[in-house]
Design a protein around this nucleic acid. Structure first.
Lengths: 108, 108
DNA sequence: ATATATACCTAGCTACACTAGGTATGGAAG
DNA sequence: CTTCCATACCTAGTGTAGCTAGGTATATAT
């Protein structure tokens, strides 16, 4: 469960270059060292949400002798959103880190 | 949104010493540098869930001239659960980190 | 000819954090 | 002394987001 951080992850996966659904899933799987093997039922609705929100744009393409693919790219708003999500993740993870570490001062 | 990480945070807040609901909220707020100011409607149900699951035990106490408090402590199962949650958090945050960082090799 | 991998889609479920209310008591302010 | 606030607890209901479990279709491999 990625609760709340999926959007950031998907946006980040599209930062380097446009990609299609299956490719995004593969990118996320590899980039996370197999930690995140997301089901399609998670990723496709997320892509639709993000496009609906104007953070992604999509276009159908058909590579030579291949099946049709819907390629997604970051919009300008998407880049901005990614930056802000990265920020939020930084604050969030740092907060959780310090809570799990136990914030009391260590004895000498 | 803490989705999925709340349990770990609450368990960690009780690791050092037993505490009551309000105290736990304050501990989490301070320990996170004010990042997490959790509403009671988030924390109390979580405490009940965790007790139900056997990870916490509770007892009513009434400090001298004070209001009654329900003090929660980690059970042995709670300690074990915390350890495993810490592990899961480590893997999770590392995976998100590398995805948000962009896992491609950097140009020289 | 059949199976497998690729590629996309979505209705509905579930879990869970949160909203928005409620009760009660101790101490401070007036 | 009574009114207000902070402390302290509780829960019914809501919103949502990720996931389950189904479906369609085409290219390649067997």
């Amino acid at each position: 469960m990625l609760k709340g951080h999926l959007d950031a992850i998907v946006l980040a996966a599209l930062e380097a270059e446009p990609a299609h659904g299956y490719g995004i899933i593969a990118t996320i799987k590899q980039g996370s060292g197999n930690t995140f093997d997301l089901p399609e039922g998670t990723v496709y609705p997320a892509l639709h949400r993000l496009e609906e929100a104007g953070l992604l744009s999509s276009a159908w393409t058909t590579p030579q002798g291949g099946r049709r693919r819907r390629m997604y790219s970051l919009t300008r708003a998407g880049s901005a959103a990614l930056a802000s999500r990265r920020d939020a993740w930084g604050r969030f993870s740092q907060a959780v880190d310090s809570l799990l570490r136990g914030s009391r001062t260590w004895p000498a």
